[in-house]
């Protein structure tokens, strides 16, 4: 891993932190925040490996006691709370978005971008966040889905499209994900 990769990782951890300045909207036990946009962007711009590490770094920053989450909270407390699963899912979500983006890279456009963001940035986050919410808050699976997934679908859908629009433009003007290995070997 080069210093350049470290700088990109630090940058996208910082971007997710800056998106935390957008106030969160509390709906039931889980808030709606702009920060998952940062998660999707990290995967869509940096790719799987660096996207994963950037969001992991963000969680480390939160865990060591910086109030970087949208609700102005931070510290280890948030990993003990009912929404811990959503947070922990972010690096994995960024990885999946990045992995899919890398697969689609040669023909990446809005549609492929939205697909990658929806699978990684919505499905993966719900798949980890909802069961943890159910366990921490002692809820039935049904109640967990109703309170922990359904209210966010529209907002998350909008974020997935926004992230794809941005990623398409960034790919055109400043692509960070490298071409597949074979193309490099031919050069």
């Amino acid at each position: 891993m080069k210093t350049k990769d470290l700088a990109y990782i630090a940058l996208f951890a910082a971007i997710t932190a800056v998106l935390g300045l957008v106030p969160a909207i509390q709906v039931g036990p889980v808030p709606i925040t702009a920060q998952t946009l940062g998660v999707m962007l990290a995967g869509a711009v940096l790719g799987a490996r660096r996207g994963f590490l950037s969001q992991l770094l963000f969680l480390v920053l939160v865990a060591i006691g910086l109030p970087l989450l949208a609700s102005g909270t931070g510290g280890l407390a948030v990993f003990a709370g009912p929404t811990a699963g959503y947070l922990i899912s972010w690096p994995i979500a960024a990885f999946v978005v990045g992995w899919l983006t890398e697969r689609f890279w040669a023909r990446y456009n809005l549609a492929w971008g939205v697909l990658a963001n929806v699978v990684g940035g919505i499905l993966v986050i719900y798949a980890i966040g909802v069961p943890v919410l159910a366990a921490m808050a002692n809820l039935s699976p049904r109640a967990a889905i109703v309170s922990g997934a359904l209210p966010f679908l529209i907002g998350d859908g909008i974020k997935a499209v926004l992230a794809a629009v941005i990623a398409v433009q960034v790919r055109r003007s400043y692509p960070v994900i490298e071409r597949p290995q074979r193309a490099v070997a031919l050069k």
Binding site: L6, I9, A10, L11, A13, L57, L61
Partner: peptide
Amino acid sequence: VIAMALRF
């Protein structure tokens, strides 16, 4: 990398 993120 933590220091870089905090500066960014």
